[in-house]
Design a protein around this nucleic acid. Structure first.
Lengths: 228, 228
DNA sequence: TCCGAATCTTGATCTGGATCAATTGCGGCA
DNA sequence: TGCCGCAATTGATCCAGATCAAGATTCGGA
C-alpha cells in the first residue's frame, strides 16, 4: 500500500516544491480510496481539496444537455485533479469518477490554501504547475477545433507517455479516449483502423499501440490527411 | 493618454494584488502601442512579458493546418494576455493581433518573474487570477464540445459584459466572434437570425444586442433548441 | 474451461454546419 | 452626394462525423 509521502513524491505538480514545503503537504494529506466506478465528486459540488492519484485511474468529465459527456482529462498515477477549484476556492467545474480501483492522496482545501498563503516556494511551484495545465487545455482546445479525427488521434498518440518498449498504452477503455478526443467510439474505431491499414501504427498486446511511422503520423497530426 | 498605472489599476488579474506589490509592477511596466491590424507576436516566439490592455482590442488566436484560425480570446480593456507563457517561461502558444488601435502596458518577462519570486502576495494574486483563466478555458471547451451553434451564441451573449442599458456590445467584427465560438460567419449570421426571429434577442444600434427573453435564451444555452 | 455481459468493430444512413457562390448593406472618403 | 470596398446576409450544395443497427471480441467470474 502506498503512503501519502510516496504518492506526493511521485507527483509532477510538486516536483518544484522544496523539501520543507513538501513536508507540510505530506503532513496534511490523507488517503482516499475509491472502488472501480465510484464517483469522487460531481460538477458544482464544493471542492474537497487537491487530489493526487497514486494508483489507478480517474476520469474527469463534464456533462452536457441530454447527458452527453466529455472527458476533460484522464488522470493516472502522478497526476492531480481539482487543483484549480481548490486554488480559486470555487465549486468543482466537472465531475470525477474512478475508472478502476484508485488510491489518492487528498490535500484538504482549507489546509492547502493556508499553506499556500504562508509558503511562498510552494506558491511558485503551483504557479508553474498551473501554467502547464493551461497550456494543456489550450492544446486540447486546439485539437478539437483545428484538427480532424485522424489528426486528433495522431496527436494524442504522439503526446502520450510511452512504455519502456516505446509503445503507447491506451487507458483501459477506448471509449474514454474517444470521448477525450471528442469522437464517438465508432468514429474512433474506424479512424484507428485507417491508421493501421495505412501502416502508420500497429497494434501490440493488450491495448498497446506501436508507432510504426512517427514522421508520417506527425504529418497527419499537422493536418495532412493520409491518402488512403 | 492612459498611464501604466491607470491601465494596471483597471486590470482584473491584479485586483487581488496589495498596494506595495502593485507599485512594483507599475514601476517595471512600459507602454506598448499597436496600430490597427498590427501583429503583436506570433505563435512560438519568445514571450516578451505580460500584456495588459488599456484601450483597444486584441485577438489571440491559433493557426491550424491550411491557415484556419481559431480565436482563443478577445481581449479588451482590463484584460491580459501572454500571462501564462510569461509565468511558465515558455514560448507563446498562440499569436496576438491588434484588432483596433490598441494601448497596452507590458510587464517585461524577466522583471515580472523576478517580482513573483520575491513577492508572495503578488504570487497569490496571480494564482487566483490564473485559476479563473483555467475556468474560462474549461468553459470554452465545454462550449465547443457540448453545445450546438445556437447554444454557443446564447451562452456567449449571457456571459458577455453588459453596457449601462443592459445590452451586449459585440466586438467590432462579427467574424471574430464567430471564430471565437468555432463557427463560420455564415452559420453565425444564420443562427443569429433564428434567435431574432424566435424573439429571444433583438438588435439595437451599432452592434448592440438586446436580450429580450433571458429565460428562454438560457434554456437554449442549456441545449433546449428553439423550436422554430 | 465455459458462459454471459460489456466493449469493440463494421456497415448503412442521416445531419449540422462548412463551403461555395451571389447579393446586399454599410462606413469612410473625396 | 455618390462611389468604393469590406463585411454581412442569404441561398445551394457538400461532407465529416454522428447516429442507428447488427455482429464479433474480449474478459471477468464461477
Amino acid at each position: 500500500m502506498l503512503s501519502v509521502i510516496e504518492i506526493l513524491a511521485d507527483c509532477r505538480l510538486f516536483t518544484a516544491v522544496p523539501a520543507k514545503s513538501f513536508q507540510r503537504l505530506a503532513a496534511m494529506a490523507r488517503l482516499a480510496k475509491f472502488r472501480k466506478g465510484q464517483m469522487i465528486f460531481r460538477e458544482n459540488e464544493d471542492c474537497p481539496g487537491v487530489y493526487v492519484v497514486g494508483k489507478g485511474m480517474v476520469r474527469v468529465f463534464k456533462t452536457g444537455a441530454g447527458g452527453k459527456e466529455h472527458v476533460l482529462h484522464i488522470v493516472e498515477a502522478g497526476g492531480t485533479f481539482a487543483e484549480v477549484a481548490a486554488l480559486g476556492g470555487f465549486k468543482v467545474p466537472a465531475s470525477a469518477e474512478a475508472v478502476e480501483a484508485t488510491l489518492c492522496a487528498l490535500l484538504p482545501q482549507p489546509l492547502f490554501r493556508k499553506a499556500l498563503e504562508e509558503d511562498h516556494p510552494l506558491c511558485l511551484g503551483m504557479l508553474s504547475g498551473l501554467s502547464l495545465w493551461v497550456k494543456h487545455l489550450v492544446g486540447l482546445l486546439e485539437d478539437v477545433v483545428l484538427r480532424d479525427a485522424a489528426g486528433r488521434i495522431a496527436n494524442y498518440l504522439l503526446d502520450a507517455r510511452r512504455t519502456a518498449d516505446g509503445a503507447v498504452a491506451l487507458p483501459s477503455l477506448k471509449r474514454y479516449v474517444a470521448s477525450h478526443l471528442n469522437l464517438t467510439s465508432e468514429t474512433f474505431s474506424r479512424t484507428f483502423r485507417r491508421l493501421i491499414d495505412a501502416g502508420l501504427i500497429s497494434i501490440g498486446k493488450k491495448n498497446h499501440v506501436l508507432i510504426v511511422a512517427p514522421e508520417r503520423l506527425r504529418s497527419v497530426a499537422q493536418g495532412i490527411l493520409p491518402k488512403v
